[in-house]
Nucleic acid binder design. Structure first.
Length: 427
RNA sequence: GUGGCCGUAGCUCAACAGGUAGAGCACCGGAUUGUGACUCCGGAGGUAGCGGGUUCAAGACCCGUCGGCCACCCCA
């Protein structure tokens, strides 16, 4: 193998998978449109400061996962590790915040992490962001929108919705203090990672996978008790709305998010079918971020779904992955036939643009061309040989004759090609 | 960044107390001159990830390195 290979964690998406991707992208876009969301297309690269200020200086993403480099002017740039920051930046810069905005975007994100199942260094997210609405009906809409996407994808039964409210920044500050005080007295019982988090990011201890750490937390302070009245009321209202809409959910009081900008509602859609990377979609409210990035104070909520993880789920559920077969394969033996076939096929593409017509290229014997025709999966072969050229005709041959009826083929005048072909292709 | 497992033809995998590599699929050609599929025959394709060591001899053993997978971590 050549020593030039793809960069670790940046995978090729092969033809055998793209049908699944297209189904996913098409379905997601259709649902988003049906909720009145508009697509926005954003740069892959932004100034480094944007991510540091939005995601948080002490998060793992900013500290060790960003692809950051200096451009030729010496300015620090970063390949986007997530989409919200850029979307907020654009909304502020382009003056989109005078009225409620419902936006979505899709594309690659970049994080320098060790690859594993459902995790790569270049991965794809579709993000949804709603600006300008502070009330929990907006939260409910976003969650319903997700549920609708899962339903349309046939994945609703694979998903569990986990919900929490992390309240205001002040509430979290107070809670963090209480939590640190509590855990400090029990440091010895915590796993190594959680001991480290005690200093760096104590709230993340809450979703530790270590069972002993989890049982230590059972006697600790609950974030719920520190929530301000508004956050509690809004969360209760959100739960009511979800119940009314028939959305199943689980309140997980230990659900926190890794990015600093979240407040109040946070949620995750998780699945047990994907191994360790079970979070398929996650998001929450970020009412402070727009102001923090220099815009006028604007409430907002958003979420992002991991497209690779959705593709994995779709594949495990047996979504068709084969690229579509050709409809027609064009066999032409000899130089004269080749010229006529090429022209006739071009005309056919004008008449029947939806047909997938594969022209044989590269020469080869008649027999080998027929083999290619068969392997292409085409239902019909169009054949031009010496006889057809001489008679200004073409042979239309059905390659997928049903049991018994021996390979139906008919030779007709060129001008009858379109109707004969359509008849042969008719079910 | 840490750990476990793995690295043989395009793909999926074999073999053998360590004695210089094989199958299936795929690919190419042929089975009387322009007709695919099934069948039969033939062919091409690997300096065994890379480097070093042990040995008369290593794909097999040892070390290193790179890469892959999965998990930790992190998160979508």
């Amino acid at each position: 193998m050549s020593e030039i290979t793809a960069i670790r964690g940046m995978n090729d998406i092969l033809p055998s998978e793209t049908a699944c991707w297209q189904f996913l992208e098409r379905t997601v876009a259709a649902v988003l449109s049906s909720y009145g969301y508009d697509e926005i297309r954003l740069p892959l690269v932004e100034k480094t400061a944007l991510f540091k200020r939005s995601i948080g200086e002490v998060t793992d993403i900013v500290e060790k996962e960003m692809y950051t480099f200096d451009d030729r002017n010496g300015d620090s740039m970063t390949l986007r590790p997530e989409g919200t920051a850029g979307c907020v930046r654009a909304a502020i810069q382009q003056g989109l915040l005078n009225t409620p905005q419902r936006l979505w975007y899709t594309g690659p994100m970049f994080r320098y992490e060790r690859p594993q199942k459902g995790r790569q260094r270049q991965f794809h997210q579709t993000g949804v962001e709603a600006f300008g609405v502070a009330t929990p009906d907006m939260d409910a809409e976003l969650i319903l929108l997700c549920a609708q996407i899962w339903r349309q994808l046939g994945l609703l039964d694979s998903m569990e919705l986990q919900l929490n409210s992390i309240g205001s920044a002040e509430a979290r500050r107070a809670y963090r203090e209480a939590l640190v005080d509590f855990l400090q007295a029990r440091v010895e019982q915590l796993d190594e990672d959680s001991q480290r988090r005690l200093h760096s990011n104590p709230l993340r201890i809450l979703d530790s996978k270590n069972s002993q750490t989890q049982s230590v937390l059972d006697d600790g302070p609950s974030l719920e008790d520190f929530l301000d009245e508004e956050a509690s009321a809004d969360f209760a209202r959100l739960c009511e709305l979800l119940q009314a809409a028939g959305i199943q959910y689980v309140v997980n009081r230990r659900l926190v998010r890794g990015l600093d900008y979240y407040n109040k509602t946070v949620f995750e859609w998780v699945t047990r079918e994907l191994g360790a990377q079970g979070t398929v979609c996650a998001g929450g409210r970020y009412d402070g971020l727009v102001g923090q990035l220099g815009g006028k104070a604007t409430p907002a909520i958003g979420c992002a779904m991991g497209m690779e993880r959705l593709v994995l789920l779709l594949l495990e559920h047996g979504q068709a992955t084969a690229p579509p077969a050709a409809d027609v394969y064009v066999v032409a033996a000899g130089d004269a036939a080749q010229g006529i076939a090429l022209a006739a096929t071009q005309a056919l593409r004008c008449q029947q643009p939806q047909l997938r017509i594969v022209q044989h290229t590269g020469g080869g014997s008649f027999k080998s061309q027929m083999k290619k025709a068969d392997k292409s999966g085409a239902r019909v072969a169009l054949i031009w040989g010496e006889d057809e050229v001489a008679a200004e005709s073409v042979t239309v041959k059905s390659l997928r004759a049903q049991n018994g009826e021996r390979a139906a083929q008919v030779t007709v005048a060129l001008r009858e090609l379109e109707t004969t072909l359509c008849a042969a292709l008719a079910p």
